[in-house]
């Protein structure tokens, strides 16, 4: 199954990925690559993510829940305050369901559970992107 998607104008979706684990960031980069997307920023906490969001204005943000300086729930709240149309997908370990619910209540659109295989995460993120945006599938 082809996982690559594009915006209707043919350009790639732009992702900001946020996690305090270098290992998870790498897995997310592989996921975005499978989707034919572009990683426009990588942040290891919510504070960095806020700065990068303002600079890069990505289409989609993926965010961890538990991070130093500013966690994922606070990040979602701050992003929604900055841009009510922000699209955030939470990437959480098992055990943080309460915080995931809080993040979704604050405006996050979906969540995926760690650990994940990039191909499986790409399928999930693709279905979310297809619901949130007009997309063009790449044959």
């Amino acid at each position: 199954m082809g996982l690559e998607i594009r915006k209707v104008d043919g350009s790639p979706f732009r992702f900001l990925i946020v996690d305090d684990s270098a290992f998870i960031l790498k897995a997310l980069k592989m996921t975005v690559k499978l989707l034919g997307g572009e990683v426009v920023g990588e942040a290891m906490d919510g504070v960095q993510a806020m700065e990068l969001y303002k600079k890069t204005r990505p289409d989609i943000v993926t965010s961890d829940i538990v991070m130093p300086n500013m966690g994922g729930v606070e990040l979602v709240r701050n992003l929604v305050a900055l841009d009510p149309d922000v699209k955030v997908v939470m990437v959480s370990s098992l055990g943080h369901q309460d915080m995931v619910k809080e993040a979704i209540g604050a405006g996050a659109k979906y969540f995926i559970v760690k650990p994940f295989k990039p191909a499986e995460a790409a399928v999930k993120i693709k279905s979310v992107v297809e619901k949130l945006f007009s997309v063009r599938s790449v044959a």
Binding site: S21, A22, F23, I24, K26, M30, S93, L94, G95, H96, K114, P115, K117, P118
Partner: peptide
């Protein structure tokens, strides 16, 4: 890391093993 070979315990290898413990401990 999905088949990527590692020859040394560099920073990224250590981050990978820490994440294994973090995920297992969390679970």
């Amino acid at each position: 890391n999905f088949g990527e070979p590692f020859e040394e315990l560099d920073d990224f290898a250590c981050a990978t093993l820490c994440e294994l413990a973090n995920l297992a401990g969390g679970r």
